[in-house]
Design a protein around this nucleic acid. Sequence first.
DNA 1: TTAGTTTGTAACAATTCTGTAACATAATAA
DNA 2: TTATTATGTTACAGAATTGTTACAAACTAA
Lengths: 226, 226
Amino acid sequence: MNGKIFIIEDEPSIIQLVQHNLEKEGFIVSSSLNGNEGLKELKKFEPNLLLLDWMLPDLSGIDICKNIRKDNSFKDLPIIMLTAKGEEEDKIKGLDSGVDDYLTKPFSFNELMARIKAVLRRSNPNTVSDNLEFEDLVLDRIEKRVFRDKKEIKLGPTEFRLLEFFLSNPKRVYSRDQILENVWPNNVNVESRTIDVHIRRLRQSVNIKDKKELIRTVRSSGYSLI
Amino acid sequence: MNGKIFIIEDEPSIIQLVQHNLEKEGFIVSSSLNGNEGLKELKKFEPNLLLLDWMLPDLSGIDICKNIRKDNSFKDLPIIMLTAKGEEEDKIKGLDSGVDDYLTKPFSFNELMARIKAVLRRSNPNTVSDNLEFEDLVLDRIEKRVFRDKKEIKLGPTEFRLLEFFLSNPKRVYSRDQILENVWPNNVNVESRTIDVHIRRLRQSVNIKDKKELIRTVRSSGYSLI
DNA sequence: TTAGTTTGTAACAATTCTGTAACATAATAA
DNA sequence: TTATTATGTTACAGAATTGTTACAAACTAA
């Protein structure tokens, strides 16, 4: 998951929490505590999505919204509005003003994340791709297909998940424990040597003559893409 | 398993139990009985993980959480929240205060241990992201690679850990005892001369023609980077 | 059902890593 | 200087880790 997200929200604790978690998810995040300043910074930052608080000390969220929509280069910027509880009526207005979605505080991060993904996918398909890529390797999560060098590769379910996991963070070395935790269904007990065998199978499928080895063994640590 | 764990929890019996068991597992543990004092001590202690009680006499767990997340040097500190049953669980989760995991009292030590391991695995390699650097030497802990002068150097597992240890505090002279304690798995007995041999191997790998020696011998004291 | 896949494990092979001993050399003290 | 102690260097056996293969059980699709 990638993309740039801007937050305008006057409560620092919310900014901290959301920003922290979004960055952990791989987004580039910037923020502002008030409307006027936020508008300026936003235009410099050029985000792919805006999280906008409804109640701000200077401008209301709706004013910001209108302002943004006037600016030609941002008239398609997806906006998710954050509203405090009990601002029900205003929601409707909010939607009228060109907001893409709204979220009522307090919200869980998972909720927020789901909305962000949905909105980004809907309005900016390029920033959120369901393909994982690494060099000449492409994994299509939706169609469950894998290509190397434009040619399709057939993988079994486990090899697919294994490769998907490696691609989530290419080059990073994962221990067998980490692989087990993330690739196998929870609380399934398999020997760690089993992973070696699946690595072997994945290697066999993924390797192409005249192409370099894709999976690196790091002795006493685990495996990684390379 | 190693690392530093801090506990903020007002019930002494729980602290006793948890602390004792964690120390037996090889963790360095410190604790505090209340929020305000805990916050101060925590920042001095610089833990790798925090066990945080939800109900405290002075501050609530969530306040502490927010406070921690504001501090830049601790915004990635993994936190496991301890809650009593029925203690507004939903609220805690709903607010998503940046907590990494929850545990409902009463819990077994095994449960706790499992969560700790999972959280540490999940968040430590990520947050500790960083490369260790010293002059033209770079050690990438995530990808488990070492570079000197931009060129990759192949190291065995022990040499890697050895170098990693030296890089944690470059220029500092470590005695053979300290090296043993930190580089070799706990309760392994090896002769101290063995270290000399590994130093030799590390030197051989790390040294480059026309570049100065990187590892200094301090007679009767130990070794250090230089 | 049946035929074809997929999966986990065991067993063995291949490879790499480690610790130690033994000897060489360097530094220090007497 | 010589004696003594600390460190450097090398070689090697056996530990430990990983690669590979084969096979039976579990699973799927027709």
